[in-house]
């Protein structure tokens, strides 16, 4: 079965700076369960790319295996996508990024894909500060294999079959902070207003950008007693701030009084504008961000928004000093030393 979207659109849809309407950013029709949080996130990605005037073909969509990892088929149909193997998206993204530093690498993973089978690669891609967006569609379970608890399920959380999770859940945000990720955000699939600017900012961040999005699995983990259900999240959500991503040279309009606002300049000239900051928390200070996460956990709050950013972090290519020209565009004459050089090497081996 193939899924082809009906191409009926209102004729005067708004265009972005590139002249594209939002449907230009869509993908094929989703085959996920109706109401799955993942679909809302795909929608947010589509909107973010549209608003950020992204050329879809300059994006590479990378994913592992799972319901979440299928979603790249459902957005940006003009981008190449790579649905790799379970838990190994980070390595494939690393190789792709090494080959061509000029594309945007948009990685999508699940909590099983990231926090269990893929934990090793997840940890190491952060360590290397690969320039990519790493978005986890976190539902606390393995959707595609029918609802087993995942490693991010909270201790005490109950799943649809009534099992209570006995083990500590892995908090990917705290882990990302611990490992030194330069951009760490958390959100909820039901909060598009927050998710869209977060995704835009993550794409602008020149380094590893982690967005952990709680994305309820309506089929296996949306029951009473689950801490990853729509109801539970809505009851416990606590935003660190309201958040705006301001592209380059846009005038900043703010409804909030000074003192409650913080602006963070990004490398490409754009700005992150945070309003209504939570007290005693500074998103540019790592230990303050770690503290905020710890406190939220103690209070059973689900903290969302931009948790931490270090706009100065150096991505892998800058760390290892690869050429500014993407490696996949270097010509044979640059790469091959030729027979003369070989004659010298031969002489040294005699």
């Amino acid at each position: 079965m193939t899924y082809i979207k009906p191409k009926f659109r209102h004729p005067d849809l708004q265009k972005n700076k590139l002249g594209y309407t939002i449907d230009y950013y869509e993908g094929s029709l989703s085959t996920l369960c109706a109401g799955c949080g993942h679909d809302s996130i795909s929608g947010a990605i589509i909107r973010a790319c549209f608003e950020a005037n992204i050329e879809p073909h300059k994006v590479a969509k990378m994913s592992g295996i799972g319901c979440s990892s299928k979603t790249p088929a459902y957005f940006l149909s003009n981008s190449h996508g790579f649905n790799s193997v379970h838990g190994r998206m980070p390595s494939v993204a690393t190789g792709a990024n090494m080959a061509n530093r000029d594309l945007i690498y948009f990685g999508v993973s699940g909590d099983g894909d990231t926090a269990s089978i893929g934990m090793g690669q997840f940890v190491h891609v952060i360590r290397r500060n690969l320039n990519m967006v790493y978005l986890v569609m976190n539902n606390g379970c393995y959707g595609l294999t029918k609802g087993q608890d995942s490693a991010t399920a909270d201790c005490g959380s109950k799943n649809k079959s009534g099992n209570i999770n006995l083990y500590e859940g892995i908090d990917l945000v705290s882990l990302g902070l611990e490992l030194g990720a330069g951009f760490v955000a958390q959100s909820f699939s039901g909060d598009k207003g927050q998710l869209v600017p977060l995704i835009k900012a993550a794409m602008a961040h020149p380094g590893f950008a982690l967005i952990n999005v709680v994305s309820p699995c309506v089929t296996f983990n949306n029951n009473v007693g689950s801490t990853k259900s729509y109801d539970y999240i809505r009851e416990h959500i606590e935003a660190t701030s309201t958040f705006d991503f301001v592209p380059e040279m846009t005038e900043i309009k703010t409804d909030y009084s000074e003192g409650e606002t913080k602006q963070i300049a990004m490398h490409d000239g754009s700005l992150i504008q945070l309003n209504k900051l939570t007290k005693d928390w500074d998103p540019t200070n790592r230990s303050s961000a770690m503290n905020a996460m710890l406190n939220a956990k103690e209070n059973n709050e689900f903290l969302t928004g931009l948790i931490y950013i270090n706009p100065e972090s150096l991505e892998t290519h800058e760390l290892i000093q690869t050429s500014k020209t993407p490696l996949n565009q270097l010509s044979q004459s640059t790469l091959c030393p030729g027979n003369m050089a070989l004659a010298e090497i031969n002489a040294d081996l005699r």
């Binding site: 590479a60 990378m62 790579f82 790799s84 193997v85 190994r88 980070p90 390595s91 494939v92 993204a93 690393t94 190789g95 792709a96 990024n97 090494m98 080959a99 061509n100 594309l103 090793g120 690669q121 190491h124 993407p326 490696l327 996949n328």
Partner: peptide, 17 residues
């Protein structure tokens, strides 16, 4: 595992790896 994944990512993207 990761080494092989990286090689595939790079060659998929047109570099020789």
């Amino acid at each position: 595992l990761a080494a092989m994944g990286m090689v595939l990512g790079a060659m998929w993207n047109g570099a020789r790896a």
